[in-house]
Nucleic acid binder design. Structure first.
Lengths: 203, 203
DNA sequence: TATTTTTGTGAGCAATCGTTCAACTACGGA
DNA sequence: TCCGTAGTTGAACGATTGCTCACAAAAATA
């Protein structure tokens, strides 16, 4: 009943996502959004309520498609979990695309402006990454690729922070060599996090 | 010659810095700036040329006062360098202030919007932090607190990334326990980065 | 076919943005 | 004391912001 929607919601969210990654929430005006998505204000406000609503939808789509996709490909599926973790880091450096758009989670966490719905979306995405690390580390431990007493939870949080920091440095435009040495450091640091003992052992 | 300036430039830059840390560049309007600094538009534009100029001056002031101050207190001066590194991390978590304003370097690197003068300011500040880590690590190595073949440069870059990542997670509002385990991970990972060999040793 | 319902279109709203500028105020030197 | 100079003030500018709404177009129902 009624006229059919002429545009594809997935495509619109994909271009909105692209725009927000490049320009941020405040930096993307509704004229920019109109140009990027091809959607006129009326349709946009009918569907997403307002700019916040569109952003929220784009963030959700980013979590579902980009984040979970990357987690699956690099952290959950590879037969060699440590190699997967490494490629998760290096793929964030070698983006190919000319000016790196940055991660929408990182950018949103920092731009913040404390929209509660947005905070929940960021937490959700970060938890997905952390969970992916934890899964890969557990599998690596079972394969004997790490010390048997590796503290999986702590190491996963450690890698999450390192990954977010890497994205900041990528965004800051630091040289590739520096960024790759961060990746090397990430890999080397796996194994240094053991379960806490009463006494700290030597090395 | 002429009327005397009624306001103190350091105080104005301090409040501008505070405002930019909370709201970001785009999120801080000139009306906000006027309210925060007490400066009327005319005086502001006479002194700083425009909003970019004020932001640039505030970023420089942040580097000189906050960043270099923190680097000195936690990384350069402490007799125990590793304890200093730890306090450098924990002091970023326990800010005391209710809503954490975040680090202006991190926020600016992510908000980006590629203002060339701004990029230089960010690089400068990040280099100061990395340099502080390198100094502390070198001293720790001389004291015998780390393996003698510690790769100081790589570890410093590693800690810089970890620190920036921690600030993102702080800004995202992750629980204290998670943040502190990141710090623990940072300390534990020092020592895992040796100078590269032909063969990788066990452990 | 006539009617109802949904969607597309874009001109235009009030509010706010960064910025300018003319009038005003205080100081030093003649 | 009068003038030149530097600083302060705040009204107001054009541009842009997020957003609304009256109208046109297309599909489903009668």
């Amino acid at each position: 009943m009624g006229r059919r929607q002429l545009w594809d919601q997935d495509e619109v969210l994909a271009s909105a996502m692209r725009l927000f990654r490049h320009r941020g929430y405040l930096g993307a005006s509704l004229r920019d959004i109109e140009e990027a998505t091809g959607l006129h204000p009326g349709s946009l406000y009918r569907t997403f309520r307002n700019k916040d609503g569109l952003f929220h939808a784009a963030l959700d789509a980013y979590n579902e498609r980009v984040v979970q996709g990357r987690v699956r490909v690099h952290l959950l599926e590879p037969a060699d979990p440590l190699a997967g973790i490494r490629s998760f880091f290096t793929s964030a450096i070698e983006t190919g695309a000319e000016p790196d758009p940055g991660c929408l989670l990182t950018n949103t966490a920092v731009e913040s402006f404390t929209l509660p719905e947005t905070a929940a979306g960021v937490h959700h995405g970060l938890a997905a990454i952390e969970g992916g690390f934890a899964d890969a580390l557990t599998r690596a431990r079972h394969r004997g690729d790490t010390p048997p007493d590796l503290d999986v939870a702590t190491t996963a949080a450690h890698l999450l922070a390192l990954y977010q920091g890497l994205l900041v440095l990528v965004r800051a435009g630091l040289p590739r060599t520096t960024l790759h040495s961060v990746t090397d450091g990430a890999m080397a640091s796996i194994g240094s996090l053991r379960t806490v003992r009463k006494q700290d052992d030597h090395e």
